[in-house]
Amino acid sequence: MVKEIVKYPTTPSLEFGGNIRHFDESLFELIQDIKDTMEANDLNALAAFQIGSPYAVILIKKEDGSYLEIINPRIIKREGVIEPIETTAYFPGLSAKTRRYEKIKLMYEDREGKQQFLEADGDLSITIQRKIDYVFGSNFRIRLNDEERKLFDSKLEFGTDAIMDNGCPTVFKRDRILQLFRVLFISAIIGLIGSFFVSPETLETLKSVENYLMLSMLGLVVVYFFYAQYEGRQYKNCSSCQIGNIIGTSAIELTKLLALFIASYFIL
């Protein structure tokens, strides 16, 4: 039966990590539920916790379409350290750079209760380690260093994986709005100077162009003010200074626009 996948912010039950003691029909039904849910959601691995079960069961889909059934897993040997970029159905649409063992040796039981051993590296090793986190009531967030955890928490807050840096950069996307504003502002200044050298007929056309330019610049300032605040909230380390900078920059651009409007009113 296809089950609903447990997603953040649902937390593990206090009953998580229960070892399988009876290898009977109820276990086989749980395994089938995990398989059905994996197929329905096009997943290559799933832990029992992710469909709401407290038991220590993991399924991993092999390249040939068969399933590796891991029951009561324990990692008994570890080698090397790697930092892969991971995704998981628990945090849909989000990724993070974690810290994992490069190679592991796993002890587990199959559906018949027979003890098995498995040596894994590469993607299989990473997948097993991630699913074992769920077995013990956790998730890959505990595998993040302080910097990556702050970045990932920002992703959780905004619900997007597009946040790439939790620091305070020196260049923002909103700067492009200011660049366009300044191009229009210079164009308007050139238009005012040119008004002294054109015919009355051309002057009327120039006046309309100047009005459109100033209206466009006003719109850009409004867009800048609101977009800059949205962009600034993605960088928690310097959000307070950014807000002050945004307000100050908007005020300066509006003052320049007001001066241009006054000059245009008297000249044109």
Rank of each mutant, 00 (worst) to 15 (best):
K97V: 12
F261K: 11
D146I: 10
K207C: 09
I246Q: 07
N237A: 13
A259W: 09
M1A: 13
L268V: 02
S239K: 14
G17H: 10
N166L: 08
T205L: 13
M38E: 11
A259F: 08
N41M: 05
L124F: 02
I82V: 14
D64Q: 09
E210K: 08
G113Q: 08
F49R: 11
Q129N: 06
M38D: 12
D33T: 01
I186P: 00
E102R: 14
K236R: 10
Y230A: 09
S199D: 14
K207E: 09
I60K: 03
I104M: 06
M217W: 05
F261Q: 05
A48L: 09
K207P: 04
N44Y: 12
A188L: 13
L220S: 07
G52L: 05
P200H: 04
D24N: 14
L218R: 04
A120M: 07
E86W: 03
A120W: 04
V135C: 07
T88R: 03
F140D: 01
S13N: 11
V222T: 11
R130S: 05
G244K: 14
E69F: 03
I58G: 06
L258M: 08
S125M: 06
M1P: 09
I128Y: 11
E148D: 13
M38V: 11
R233P: 04
I262K: 03
D64L: 13
I82P: 03
S154F: 01
I252L: 00
D161H: 12
L27H: 08
K61A: 03
Y8Q: 03
G122V: 02
R111E: 13
K97N: 07
G248V: 11
L213V: 02
E83T: 10
Y212W: 07
G232H: 07
I70R: 10
L151P: 07
F181P: 05
C238A: 02
G194L: 12
L27G: 05
L180F: 10
G159L: 03
D64C: 07
F140Q: 01
F152P: 12
I189F: 10
L94W: 06
L94C: 04
G219P: 04
E86F: 03
L206I: 08
F152Q: 11
P169A: 01
G191R: 15
S239I: 08
E102L: 02
V135L: 08
M1Q: 04
R143Y: 04
L203W: 00
D121P: 05
I246Y: 05
I5V: 14
G52I: 02
L43E: 04
G194T: 13
I60H: 08
R130H: 12
N41L: 09
Y224H: 09
M214V: 10
E112Q: 12
